[in-house]
């Protein structure tokens, strides 16, 4: 077993322990906060595919999040679908939305893309608010049934936490597999230099679309989870503020890293909860801290910490060591 493998299975093990221990948590307040943190983490992971790995901005991630939540909400209440089918539908629909949004917008660069995605988020929100006959308008949708799994109702917070942690783990694992493949290399290359990508035979447009689609799909799942947990959804959860929070979480944590978004979600949740005692001042101080972190740690918290911990390089270099050893051996055999 090389170091790479050990690291991989350690992460899986830690994830399993988290899931199992969540079942024994009793404090309702902590449970609820933890579920929201997991959903926030999943959203940050979704936007990280764009802003971190592919170098594209999305300021409309709440649009996907909302479409996911409303799909689950509407399908389960109006058409009485099971939660699981509805969740799958939410994933497919938001992936498609990502694809369709990406078709025109991925041709845009930097700020233009930011503004276009922001416009997408706003249009979606306006529709939630005004297409009253379908979405219930500002009142939203009530009475979404919490999901059931193997006869266990997930309306108990600790079960739901376990379940959402499991979903998060699967998503992170998938991202890990995708990023460490030709797809991830293509994304990375597009982020640094699109012309390099072109002359390496990478279909830049196609890979950008793929990133958009996957990102939308993951945000859609987060939305479905939110709907299942809250059993009530309304447009204000999926507004511009939410989009900004999502992208800030990813950037604060460390864009383009696997665990950065998780760290970002954790830090922001703890920060936000610990400022609760300040009441009205809370939001002001929270925003001020956000700006400060962006100004002083532009590369993100996770890369900063892992750089401090390990004198040189970030975690991704660990796995390179294995490749290096392999290659050294080849060098020997040839000389």
């Amino acid at each position: 077993m090389n170091r790479n493998r050990i690291l991989f299975w350690t992460c899986i093990l830690v994830g399993m322990i988290c899931i199992l221990s969540s079942l024994y948590l009793q404090n309702l307040y902590i449970l609820r906060v933890a579920v929201f943190a997991v959903i926030a983490a999943m959203l940050a992971v979704s936007v990280n595919l764009l802003v971190g790995y592919t170098g594209q901005v999305s300021l409309g991630q709440a649009g996907f999040y909302g479409i996911g939540a409303y799909t689950v909400g509407l399908l389960t209440t109006q058409w009485h679908w099971s939660f699981w089918l509805a969740l799958l539908a939410a994933f497919i629909l938001t992936s498609l939305t990502g694809l369709i949004l990406g078709l025109p917008t991925t041709q845009l660069k930097g700020h233009f893309l930011g503004i276009a995605t922001l416009g997408f988020g706003i249009i979606v929100n306006v529709i939630f608010n005004n297409w009253t006959s379908l979405t219930g308008g500002p009142n939203g949708i009530r009475g979404i049934a919490p999901p059931e799994l193997f006869g266990i109702s997930l309306q108990y917070e600790n079960y739901f936490l376990g379940f959402s942690l499991f979903c998060l783990m699967v998503v992170v694992l998938m991202v890990h597999l995708v990023v460490n493949s030709a797809i991830g290399r293509a994304w990375k290359c597009i982020r640094h230099d699109e012309i390099s990508a072109q002359v390496s035979g990478i279909n830049v447009y196609g890979y950008k679309l793929m990133a958009f689609s996957l990102s939308g799909g993951i945000a859609g799942i987060a939305g479905g989870l939110y709907a299942g947990f809250m059993t009530f959804i309304s447009p204000e959860t999926f507004d511009l503020n939410q989009s900004i929070t999502i992208i800030t979480t990813a950037i604060l944590g460390g864009p383009g890293t696997l665990f950065g978004p998780l760290v970002g979600a954790g830090v922001l949740t703890v920060l936000s909860e610990s400022l609760r005692a300040l009441n009205e001042l809370r939001l002001i101080i929270y925003r001020a801290i956000l700006v400060t972190v962006i100004v002083f740690l532009p590369e993100g918290i996770y890369p900063f910490i892992s750089k401090k911990l390990r004198k040189r390089g970030i975690a991704s270099q660990l796995k390179l060591k294995d490749r290096r050893r392999e290659l050294d051996e080849q060098d020997f055999s040839q000389s």
Binding site: V51, L59, H111, G114, I251, L283, A288, V291
Partner: peptide, 14 residues
């Protein structure tokens, strides 16, 4: 530029 943009979003909300 992404960080600049985020910073301005943060300032706006602040």
């Amino acid at each position: 530029h992404i960080n600049m943009m985020l910073s301005s979003l943060g300032v706006s909300l602040f």
